[in-house]
Design a protein around this nucleic acid. Structure first.
Length: 569
RNA sequence: GCGCCUGUAGCUCAGCAGGAUAGAGCAACGGACUUCUAAUCCGUGGGUCAGGGGUUCGAAUCCCUUCAGGCGCGCCA
């Protein structure tokens, strides 16, 4: 039963009864309904100020008149308060309906067919070859992962794309350095760190010896031309980098369907240039080929350099065309930091000018910058936190706390991993994505308050109660859930499916993160105020159902943002 | 210089398709475990919602403006 729609329906007929006219239809009435700030004010409310204009009556009079004309069986009462019409749904009925819906859907509560199987491409994480994974890469990875799961859950088919940064002269230099000083076994063992060492040495020596830099460029040219030796070394670098990254991705539970990165589009840019030229969009400017975007208040989009080489924008256009051709997406998301706002605005505009209506299906999911203790991240200055180190610290801390609080726990290592990694991921997805994050160890490793461990603890607590309860045959007495604490939990559970749609529309995983805290808080209050394993078996059954619905909903919410829910901790 | 973003409690932030008394967490202080997991819960203090105008019955929320900080603005990605 959709209470909001039901109230809207009653409202329309009450308006007709009282004022004898169809001033609103049901959808309009539903849009006017809002949720009061406090449960004590009711479950839904209609502010009558807007109706005052059309009905030419004071708001208070409207609310008074309507409250007298409304008496649906599902409404416990309707009150007129200072121009607001407050609806109180029958609490037992409300609890029964909401819990029934949640438990009926089981581990798919909130899922739906919104996407109808349509495809959405999500470009996220997009790491660079031969560079270590650090905290600056966490947001794109986890926001992308959350959107991937969310879109899937709401009926879309997702294609997760790790658009690798695997193109540029630096790779020629690295191949060159490897040929001169490298050792295969050492690189295999040391991974990305060894490659970085080679690169640093090359940089240092080529500063004194310019011939070396030329040699590096020559090796890059070989890669470009498909020279077998150059290519095999370069591809091996990629493998080693991905193998390193895979350890982190495994810890985070992140997966991709495609690793087609920059080099993949190397032979696909001619098409873009030809097409732009055919459509009369290219023009010369200072020797370069550009698309003029002046009429839209933007600087020109550079397509071909003076020396004939292509650029970032060219590659992204090629990638967009390829993705449309290959996947026929209904939406295409780019989870990339906000520094690139202009870049994506330009790309989307160029696609539109090319005549592609699907340009409007593209979205840049921008997020804020990460700094470390108030300063910009800098690998060069060593002012950086590597993701693997951060996760290890978090897991170690979780392990310590387990040792202290649950020495008898069976799978301590597994739970430590779930809790430690969860804390880090939660920290990253906690605020609106547009906010900058200043990383401090003690904040990222905080396990109290609004954190993953807090929500996970609540989940484990629910599991524990359910285990202790065993089987009950008694019919639930939902009247036992009429108190304010239980009602707050019920209300949150009711809101979950709508919240997911909202999070998808806004591409905002933090809404789910916040929600998980709200639900955990509400449940913990309920837990303290009400005895679940009550002697009254009807009340016990109802509270157990609420506990089960809470547990399921928390587990789903956390899963959607990429966090596991241990059953004991 | 131009464009975009951000500014809410000591700190980190919710709230911003206008609505009832501006909320959490952290930090501080004080309480609650022989009772369903105390990684929890309850309480106390703490605010000119950056400043100023405007629109509105009603503004943290919308518009204008000033200030502060961040990001971006042709041959890097």
């Amino acid at each position: 039963m959709d209470f909001k729609q039901s109230i809207a329906r009653e409202l329309v007929s009450a308006l007709k009864t009282v004022y004898g006219q169809e001033s609103l239809d049901q959808a309009q009435a539903a849009a006017l309904l809002e949720v009061p700030p406090d449960t004590a004010m009711g479950d839904y409310a209609l502010p009558c100020f807007k109706l005052a204009k059309t009905l030419r009556k004071p708001p208070v009079a409207i609310a008074d008149a309507l409250s007298g004309a409304l008496n649906a069986p599902f409404l416990a009462r309707v009150e007129s308060v200072k121009g607001y019409l407050n609806f109180f749904i029958d609490r037992a009925l409300y609890a029964g309906e909401v819990i029934g819906a949640a438990l009926g859907a089981g581990d798919r509560y909130g899922a739906c067919d919104l996407g109808q199987g349509r495809t959405v491409c999500i470009d996220y994480s997009s790491i660079n070859i031969a560079k270590r994974f650090h905290i600056g890469h966490l947001s794109t990875t986890m926001i992308g992962n959350a959107l991937y799961r969310l879109y899937n859950y709401l009926g879309y088919h997702c294609v997760g794309i790790n658009h690798l940064g695997d193109w540029g002269t630096q790779f020629g230099k690295m191949v060159c350095a490897y040929k001169k000083w490298g050792d295969r076994a050492q690189v295999e063992a040391g991974g990305v760190d060894e490659m970085v060492k080679l690169y640093v040495r090359f940089d240092r020596e080529s500063a004194e010896n310019p011939a070396l830099a030329d040699e590096g460029r020559a090796w890059f040219k070989k890669i470009e031309e498909g020279d077998p030796e150059a290519l095999s070394i370069f591809n091996w670098f990629k493998e080693v980098t991905l193998k390193d990254a895979e350890r982190v991705y495994d810890l985070l539970g992140v997966k991709f369907d495609s690793y087609a990165g920059e080099s993949f589009y190397n032979d696909k840019m001619g098409r873009v240039i030809d097409e732009l030229r055919e459509k009369g969009l290219l023009k010369e400017s200072d020797g370069a080929q550009v698309v003029d975007l002046e009429p839209w208040g933007m600087p020109p989009c550079l397509i071909v350099k003076k020396d004939g080489a292509t650029l970032y924008a060219t590659r992204d256009l090629a990638a967009a065309l390829y993705r449309k051709d290959t996947y026929d997406f209904a939406r295409c998301l780019y989870v990339v930091a906000y520094q690139q706002n202009l870049h994506f605005k330009q790309i989307f505009k160029v696609l539109e000018l090319m005549g592609y209506e699907w340009a409007r299906d593209m979205e840049h999911v921008a997020f804020g910058m990460v700094s470390y203790e108030g300063q910009t991240l800098s690998t060069r200055k060593g002012h950086v936190v590597y993701l693997e180190d951060l996760l290890s610290e978090a897991i170690a801390k979780a392990r310590e706390i387990i040792e202290e609080k649950s020495p008898g726990l069976e799978n301590k290592d597994e739970v430590a991993r779930q809790v430690g990694v969860g804390a880090v991921v939660f920290f990253d997805l906690y605020n609106n994505r547009i906010k900058d994050i200043d990383f401090w160890w003690d904040r990222a490793l905080n396990f109290d308050g609004e954190t993953a461990p807090y929500v996970q603890y609540t989940h484990a607590r629910c599991c524990s109660v359910l285990r202790k309860a065993g089987q009950t045959d008694a019919a639930p007495d939902y009247g036992a859930l009429a108190d304010a604490q239980a009602q707050d939990v019920v209300r949150l559970i009711e809101q979950f499916p709508g919240l997911l749609k909202n999070a998808l529309e806004r591409s905002e995983p933090s809404l789910i993160t916040r929600y998980s805290v709200d639900l955990a808080q509400a449940y913990n209050k309920f837990y303290y105020e009400r005895r679940i394993l009550d002697d009254d078996m009807g009340a016990r059954a109802a509270r157990l159902e609420l506990t089960r619905a809470t547990r399921n909903t928390i587990k789903i919410a956390l899963w959607l943002i990429g966090i596991e829910s241990p059953e004991r901790m």
